[in-house]
Amino acid sequence: MSVLLQAILNGVMTGTLIAVPAIGFTAIFAVLRYPSFAIAAYVTVGGFAGWFANSLWGAGVLPALAIAFLVAGAAGVATEEGALRRLRPAGALTVAIATIAANLILENVTRFLFGNDLRGYDLPLRPDLRFADLRIGPQQIENVLLAILVMAAVFAFLRFTRYGKAMRAVADNIDLARLKGIDPQRVAVTTLFLGAGLAGVGGVLLAVDTSIDPLAGARILLTVFAAAVLGGLGSIPGAVVGAFAVGIAEELSLLAVPATYRSAIGFAAILLMLTFRPRGILGERAS
């Protein structure tokens, strides 16, 4: 029983790592209607930006998160404005493919600047706390709290600010939004900044938990997709629910499936979900 509970607990912690970039991915999808594969690079860029601030200026986790958000957000906007925007008329699929190319470029920019070595944040690492048979890391609790804080901020932004409302309006119906006098281009830029910035925040959370290198984002890409599809593409609460579902499923699966197939769990989850409930747990439409 405690084995099961521990696995679920581990899953929740894995889930929080995935949830933040998954929100970024799904937000971009909701507004711009294309799946951005460059999300992996935004995660990496954010992780490196945070690392840079941490090791050069001794920044703590919170300032590192803020810097990562800004840098990754800027990278996202630069990529969109510099490369992707002109391709929008060619269709979502073309843009999606271009994001793969953009991802390759950004990944190699970080490699060019920082090399392939793993970089760890200069932060103390603490052993887990124990409750009866269960263990949980103080760092993970912090990560969970930070992730919840970030998510709360995102929800508040979407619900209460002008930009947030405009984003939701564009996501719901772009023509209607235009009629209401909302400029879709400005909304697109805001979304990109928010989405890529969140991916960057996820990169810092990931790097604080592990370490950062040019492939760090690519390694979690599939799990992020799985979370977003599971929750329903384009649904932000869905991405959160999906991230926890994938996290828990991955950890639980270790009790039954060889550990080396862990990456396949997300894929199996996507296939099952698409077969039986294509719109995902909280999504609205899929076809």
Binding site: P35, A92, L93, A96, F225, S263, G266, F267, I270
Partner: peptide
């Protein structure tokens, strides 16, 4: 489904 789903599924399939 929309074609983006196929794109994501094929990516996972290769892995």
């Amino acid at each position: 489904l929309r074609d983006d789903y196929l794109a994501i599924v094929t990516l996972g399939f290769a892995e």
